[in-house]
Amino acid sequence: MTPLLEVKNLKKHFPIHGGLLGRTTAKVYAVDGVSFDIAKGETLSLVGESGCGKSTVGKALLRLYPVTGGEVYLDGQRIDNMPARKLRPIRQRMQVVFQDPFSSLNPRMRIVDILGEPITNFGMAKNRADLREKVAQLMDKVRLPRDAMDRFPHEFSGGQRQRIGIARALAPGADLIICDEAVSALDVSVKAQIINLLVDLQDELGLALLFISHDLATVEHLTHRVAVMYLGKIVELTDRRTLFSKPHHPYTKALLSAVPVPDPTAPRNRVILTGDVPSPINPPSGCRFHTRCPLVFDRCRTEEPVLRQVGVGHESACHLTHAPGALAMS
């Protein structure tokens, strides 16, 4: 069975222009060879520090900017190099929910027009009454009162706005929704509600989600599989249970140990990384994590590790081999 979305060696480099003639003087290797796939109705989470390129992956998949290299297939159809005119109908199947519930809704449009925009774009409503009915159904789906559709975004709270954002993503009947830090700007109780809503909608509509987040604690509640990104590359990719119980990559372990535990007396064996994330303009040679890895050895500095199988459905890009869980870091 072909996966719903298949990403092969996706690259997105941003040129830096400088000098009098605006020549390209350097490149930001924001995403540098990322591969994964998402099955129908599955949630894949993309986690990593800020600046690791996870949001760039989302935007590149949506073709919000052109892709530098690699291949993207949606239901077996290649979309990364598709001309804009042919891409428009494809957009119906792939939608996005952004982080900031305030700037993601046009402040001058009523909710009915915001939600109606994709419906009209794809010619899904026969007339105005039909459009309003479709919008009303969307409001039901995201548990908002129907009569709120004639209001403006500023009349809603952050959580309600995020529901509207989700409704807009559902509007064209998409089967893949990219949630770009969709719950990161919300406070804890609202975050929980939105996550539950997403999970319910997934069950109800068979949606596939690409959940981009920096917050592993959130991810643990809704994901099937997790891909951990570091400096434009995936360093570990596995199912949720394995990732949280038997992480392989030292970076994943460091990330996991940074997750706050709501018990101050719990014994903690924290891995504290020193230094900053290296610049994606000039990434380190060999393994990109070697400048901060507590287990670094000679080979890491010269040879770049590739993703390899370390367990069933468990890939990791690290030169170290060890029995799962045996990796002790002091």
Binding site: K59, L62, L64, R88, P89, R91, Q92, M94, Q95, V96, F98, Q99, D100, S103, S104, L105, N106, E117, P118, N121, F122, G165, R168, A171, P172
Partner: peptide, 14 residues
């Protein structure tokens, strides 16, 4: 660069 413009592009607005 506003997310609502990007969302409009993503939902197929010309």
């Amino acid at each position: 660069e506003q997310p609502y413009v990007e969302a409009a592009i993503a939902s197929g607005t010309r």
